[in-house]
């Protein structure tokens, strides 16, 4: 799930407004977008990328191995299963609000085809300086820069903020893995942690988690075995219990999946848990909070 410039990307839903906007951004960044899929526009070109009638045809003609979906919820399952049947090995599902039973069907198909799903509801994957796939601001220099910290995030907006804080502190990123905000993900925090553990350029890892589910607790079990330092920020400490706060995954019921349980599990595994996003960078660089923060009131 760490993408390289050699990854050949097929964009499903390339001709839509968002598909167009983000395909242009991906191409400009250096991502090899080799094909788009739209049955009505097959044979033509869009963003100077050839359009095919089906993912199967696109795979046959271009050798694309990664697909990214700009597809609405109602047709996401069909598009995903077709892509898996076409032999796509990495499927990045950006779509939010896919019915749960469709998501389960997608995971069942992925198990049969040996496909790695990233998402649903992911903001995508960034390998700074090489390529990005999805809807992350890889091209904003204040946010991303090449380096050695691997970042795992359920949220796109919060992941962006954390990368911004790292870059500000002089810490570039080896890879950003957006795992997604859906309650049922193809790639979990633990999966992403293992991938970054085995990624030579990655020297430290940041987990950006959220209340809800038990992914951070599971990842803590893995973090315990790692030599690379791991830091984390968990959003939702101030969220009222029992309320769904947007991401379907972020719901607190009882103690399970709550902030305290996650923090306890991570700290017991030797992970540094930061109180604010800015503190993550300080924790990793071994520096105290910048004087600027403290001086903010008197400047």
């Amino acid at each position: 799930m760490i993408m390289r410039r050699s990854s050949k990307v097929i964009v499903l839903g390339i001709t839509g407004r968002q598909g167009t906007f983000w395909t242009e951004k991906m191409l400009a960044y250096g991502t090899q977008v080799v094909a788009g899929v739209n049955p009505k526009r097959a044979g033509g070109r869009h963003c100077d990328v050839p359009i095919f009638a089906s993912t199967a045809q696109a795979v046959r003609d271009t050798g694309g191995d990664v697909a990214v979906m700009f597809i609405p919820p109602a047709t996401a399952r069909e598009a995903a299963v077709s892509a898996m049947e076409a032999g796509i090995k990495h499927l990045v599902v950006l779509t939010e609000h896919i019915p749960a039973q469709d998501v389960m069907a997608m995971h069942a198909a992925a198990a049969r085809h040996g496909t790695r799903i990233v998402g649903p509801n992911t903001a995508g994957l960034v390998t700074p300086g090489e390529c990005f796939i999805g809807i992350m601001p890889a091209f904003v220099p204040s946010v991303f820069k090449p380096g050695h910290v691997g970042v795992i995030s359920r949220s796109g907006s919060l992941g962006t903020l954390v990368c911004l804080e790292l870059t500000r502190s002089g810490l570039g990123q080896s890879a950003f893995i957006g795992i997604g905000g859906d309650p049922m993900l193809g790639t979990t925090t633990r999966d992403a942690l293992a991938a970054l553990d085995h990624d030579p350029p990655t020297e430290a890892v940041v987990i950006v988690g959220e209340i809800g589910g038990t992914m951070e607790e599971d990842a803590a079990d893995y973090a315990r075995t790692m030599r690379k330092p791991v830091a984390a920020f968990i959003a939702g400490a101030a969220s009222p219990p029992g309320k769904k706060m947007g991401h379907a995954g972020a719901i607190v019921t009882g103690n399970r999946g709550g902030y305290a349980s996650k923090r306890r599990a991570l700290e017991a595994a030797g992970v540094i848990v930061a109180d604010t996003p800015a503190e993550i960078a300080h924790a990793l660089s071994g520096r105290n909070p910048r004087p600027r923060l403290h001086a903010a009131g008197v400047s």
Partner: peptide, 24 residues
Amino acid sequence: ANGAGLTMTTMDVIRHFGGRPANF
């Protein structure tokens, strides 16, 4: 704020600095 993750974080940081968030 935009996005559930960033919004929850904004609420957390308000609380961290001794304030009280009014909404999600």
